[in-house]
Amino acid sequence: MVGTIGILSILLLFLITQHKNIKQLKERKWVYLFVLVTAGTSLSLSLPFSLNGLTEYLNTTVGNLTKMVVS
């Protein structure tokens, strides 16, 4: 929860302080998209799901190749 609040606060502060600069940018859509993606991803810090499954899948598939070489 602390992490989500911290990240959302920083993003909000960023949008408030840089609002004028973002408006002048050509790639402002990218900035807003990134802010949205980051805010969305930060919610997973306080929700019961994570991307740990992806890492564990990589560890068991790709990681096993290293295990085969090393052990």
Partner: peptide, 10 residues
């Protein structure tokens, strides 16, 4: 910030 979140949730 996105990379920091990924470093935790991954």
């Amino acid at each position: 910030l996105l990379l920091a979140v990924l470093a935790i949730i991954l």
